[in-house]
């Protein structure tokens, strides 16, 4: 265990001495924290807008007034879902892309492996180090957000909402670790860290952008009649094709789970955590599989390499 910790602490030290990683990690923290501000400001603007709408409609002699938009506290934090999905995954890639390829380029892998340690200890150490950094970033985000949340929005969250938020961060952690594992795997397989980085970027683009876009383009936009105004709105609806495409993107799965947990979907905002997780079971499984696959792949490939 001592050796694993030595490797883990070296990983953490090098991560925090790497300016590029620091820059992207700071960007992540800044945005996650900023998102509370933006979320609150937008919600406030929306409430004022609602009052204006009511006044406008009344002055025009309308009889039916639209209901006040219901604001669930956690939904103010909803931007964080996107930041974790996009920037969080990039943070994990920055952390992992050169973990093995750079050791190879610099020759240090030979120094490591000529020490009395097992290969799995080395990979475990790297994993622990990465997990620690990611967990650290997320915990800072969580604490800051909870603090800012009460200060800026003036709202309080109850225990159920806090549990939702915590579980959201657990999923965020897993989501980021999946990308870290994928980078570790690519880094293991590649001799050149620049190539490993670019390859991970392409994978990231595919998973977090191209596949969701493809799925989005296959959604049905049904026309829905608005009860109050009797006007037509277009609402996106999942189709079999869009659902099938989405399976291949952990980002979509994470966003689906995240939206439910952070009360973005009004119909699910009041459900118990357990019911919510049961409802999202399919998404959770689709989110878990790629990370586990990468973990197994990394072990398998690194342990075999010695032959």
């Amino acid at each position: 265990m001592g050796k694993i910790l030595s490797i883990a602490s070296k990983e953490i030290k090098t991560a925090f001495k790497d300016k590029a990683f620091l820059a992207v990690a700071l960007l992540f923290l800044l945005l996650s924290i900023l998102s509370v501000y933006i979320g609150s400001a937008t919600k406030n603007a929306e409430i004022t807008a609602y009052q204006d709408i009511v006044n406008l409609l009344k002055s025009q002699g309308a009889t039916s007034i639209p209901a006040e938009p219901k604001i669930f506290p956690l939904s103010i934090l909803k931007n964080i879902i996107n930041y974790v999905a996009v920037i969080g995954s990039i943070v994990a890639i920055f952390l992992g892309f050169n973990s093995f390829s750079e050791e190879r380029e610099e020759g240090t892998i030979k120094l490591l492996l000529s020490r009395p340690i097992y290969r799995d200890q080395l990979i475990n150490g790297k994993l622990f180090g990465g997990a620690f950094v990611i967990a650290g970033l997320l915990i800072i985000t969580l604490v800051f957000n909870c603090f800012l949340f009460t200060v800026v929005s003036g709202m309080n969250i109850n225990f159920a909402e806090f549990s939702r938020l915590t579980v959201f961060f657990v999923f965020a952690f897993y989501y980021m670790i999946s990308f870290y594992l994928a980078s570790l795997f690519v880094s293991l397989k590649s001799q050149n860290s620049t190539f490993a980085f670019l390859l991970m970027l392409i994978i990231w683009m595919g998973v977090s952008y191209v596949i969701p876009q493809l799925a989005e383009s296959q959604k049905n936009y049904v026309y829905v009649l608005n009860n109050i105004s009797q006007t037509m709105n277009q609402m996106p609806q999942d189709t079999l094709i869009s659902k099938t495409i989405e399976i291949f993107s952990p980002t979509v799965q994470f966003k689906n789970i995240g939206r439910d947990l952070l009360q973005v979907v009004p119909e699910h905002a009041q459900l118990s955590l357990f019911t919510l997780l049961k409802l999202n079971l399919r998404s959770i499984i689709y989110l878990l599989v790629p990370g586990l696959f990468m973990l197994f792949g990394s072990y398998n490939s690194f342990l075999k390499e010695g032959n």
């Binding site: 937008t42 919600k43 929306e46 608005n226 105004s229 996106p236």
Partner: peptide, 11 residues
């Protein structure tokens, strides 16, 4: 802020 658009949902 709302699926389908805030203003549209307000009619």
């Amino acid at each position: 802020q709302l699926p389908g658009g805030f203003f549209a949902s307000m009619g």
